[in-house]
């Protein structure tokens, strides 16, 4: 490629998203009136009937959630390109226990990490002398505070619920990691972990140009939105169906505030279920609409997203069974406390 054509392609990569942004905003802004126009004027349906309202909900929510998802995932992709497991490890080296837990939980949100990399990451952290408790804060926060979940909570319940979710996830990751650190479970780590010497991973990251980072944003959209859009559509379809047809207080007796046992029950049901955030949140929104309390629904969601059997099976390679059970126990208790707390204050 010669210099001129290179400059053009760079400009195009930066300018395209800038041009798309106002288009995005216009679509987002006129989505509500456009939906109403389509339902009331074009289809000429009777406002207020079950079918009309279910359809209105579906036609409005699907593009809204997908628009928000695309924008946020694009930005998250760019932000994440500034972080890497190596840099995170460097940042955590030599941090004292509590500070380390806080920092690890925060970095868990932004560091690109997939659960199949849990083992190399765990070993890399151990190798650098990062305490196990701090490592766990990272391993808990990373799946628990999920960007797709944030977008869905924001678009279905508003920013307050999204903030509550992020803060609770952080608090659980910090405290659970700290407790695991204090319990000193080193003897329940598989013996070979401390026997092997792998040498330090190089901390040198790839040098990226800003256009590469924008490309990372596109890739993240392609990968994540490409994977979850179907769940979003299905989840909203279920939500739309329940919207009009399931009685309002259907879940109130089972998952309402007055039923104290609902929180532990939700966690017990939620842990073995393994679903991605995109599938679970539209369901949670139905639960809440039908009388479940926010704390209970939040506990259910966190148990489903934050604790997964596949991840525990992966961790079995480096941790002995009692460690994994302790970990799951601490997480379950933490999630329940969050559930009780929000049932109490909301």
């Amino acid at each position: 490629m010669n210099m001129a054509s290179q400059t053009i392609s760079i400009n195009r990569k930066v300018i395209t998203p800038l041009l798309l942004l106002p288009v995005w905003y216009i679509i987002y802004h006129f989505l509500k009136p456009a939906t109403d126009w389509l339902i009331d004027d074009v289809f000429g349906m009777t406002a207020g009937s079950h079918l009309t309202e279910a359809l209105r909900f579906f036609i409005f929510e699907v593009p809204k959630v997908l628009l928000l998802l695309t924008l946020i995932i694009f930005l998250v992709g760019i932000v994440r390109s500034y972080f890497s497991p190596e840099k995170t490890r460097k940042a955590l080296e030599g941090k004292s226990l509590f500070t380390g837990n806080v920092l690890a939980s925060l970095l868990g949100i932004v560091t690109p990490f997939c659960s199949c990399s849990a083992i190399p990451l765990f070993l890399g952290f151990v190798e650098a002398g990062i305490p196990i408790g701090v490592t766990f804060s990272f391993l808990i926060a990373s799946p628990m505070i999920n960007e797709v979940a944030i977008v869905l909570l924001f678009s279905m319940f508003g920013w307050k619920t999204a903030v509550i979710y992020v803060v609770s996830g952080l608090v659980i990751a910090i405290i659970a990691g700290w407790v695991i650190g204090r319990l000193n479970l080193r003897h329940w780590v598989q013996d070979w972990v401390y026997q092997s010497q792998f040498g330090n991973a190089d901390t040198e990251g790839e040098k990226l140009k800003f256009t590469d980072r924008i490309q990372d944003g596109y890739n993240a959209v392609k990968e994540i939105v490409g994977k979850v859009w179907l769940y979003v559509v299905l989840g909203i379809a279920v939500g739309a169906g329940a919207h009009g047809y399931v009685p309002e207080d259907f879940m109130a007796s089972l998952m309402g505030k007055s039923a104290w046992y609902s929180v532990p029950l939700s966690v017990i049901i939620g842990v073995p279920l393994y679903s991605n955030a995109a599938g679970i949140i539209p369901i949670v929104s139905v639960l809440i609409e039908k009388g479940a309390s926010l704390g209970t629904a939040l506990a259910f969601m966190m148990a489903v997203i934050g604790l997964s059997f596949p991840e525990m099976i992966i961790l079995k390679k480096v941790l002995k069974l009692p460690f994994i059970l302790t970990f799951a126990g601490i997480m379950a208790v933490g999630i329940m406390l969050v559930g009780f707390l929000f049932n109490l204050i909301m």
Binding site: S84, P85, R89, C114, I119, P120, G124, F198
Partner: peptide
Amino acid sequence: DITEIMKYHIMAT
């Protein structure tokens, strides 16, 4: 094999 993989000093697969 994870021990083989770790010889390459990587933290993400």
